[in-house]
Simulated scan of single mutants.
Amino acid sequence: MLVLLPPSEGKANPDEGAPLKPGSLSLPGLTGAREAVLTELVELCAGDQEKAREVLGLSEGLRGEVAKNAGLPTAGTRPAGEIYTGVLYDALGLATLDAAARRRAEDALLVFSGLWGAVRVSDRIPSYRCSMGVKLPGIGALAAHWRAPMAEVLPEVAGEGLVLDLRSSAYAAAWRPRGEVAGRTATVRVLHAPTRKVVSHFNKATKGRMVRSLLTAGAVPADPAELVEVLRELGYAVEAEAPGKAGRAWSLDVLVEEVH
Rank of each mutant, 00 (worst) to 15 (best):
C45F: 00
L62Q: 07
L58N: 05
E35D: 07
E50C: 08
E35A: 12
A36S: 11
L38P: 05
L58P: 02
V55Y: 00
G57N: 09
K68A: 05
K51N: 10
V37E: 06
A67N: 04
A36Y: 00
A33W: 01
A67I: 13
G61P: 00
R34S: 13
L62H: 03
E40F: 14
L72A: 09
V55T: 11
L44S: 07
S59D: 01
E50G: 04
V42Y: 08
D48P: 01
A67T: 14
A46Q: 14
E54Q: 03
E35T: 05
A70G: 14
E65L: 09
K51I: 12
G32H: 09
E54H: 05
E40R: 15
K51G: 14
V37M: 10
T39N: 12
N69A: 06
R63M: 15
G61S: 01
G71H: 06
K68P: 00
N69D: 09
E43L: 03
E60W: 10
L58F: 03
L62N: 06
K68Q: 07
G47V: 15
L72Q: 04
E65T: 00
L44C: 12
G71T: 09
R63K: 11
E40W: 14
L62E: 05
Q49I: 15
L41E: 02
G64E: 09
E50R: 10
A70V: 07
K51R: 14
L62Y: 01
S59N: 02
L41P: 02
L72T: 04
L56Y: 05
G64F: 11
L62P: 02
R34K: 11
K51S: 09
G47N: 11
L41R: 07
N69M: 13
E65Q: 14
D48W: 04
Q49H: 13
L56K: 11
G32Y: 01
G47I: 15
V37A: 08
G32V: 12
A46N: 06
K68H: 06
S59I: 09
Q49M: 12
E54M: 04
V42I: 09
L56Q: 13
T39K: 15
Q49G: 12
E40C: 13
E43A: 06
V37D: 10
S59V: 10
L58Q: 00
L41G: 07
A46W: 00
G32F: 06
A46T: 13
L38K: 11
E40S: 13
L58G: 00
V42L: 11
E50P: 05
L62T: 02
G32K: 14
L44V: 12
L58C: 03
G32M: 11
G64S: 11
V37Y: 02
E40V: 15
A33I: 09
E60V: 15
A67L: 07
L72N: 05
L41K: 10
S59Y: 03
E60L: 08
V66S: 03
Q49Y: 02
A33S: 08
R34H: 08
G61R: 03
L38H: 08
A46S: 13
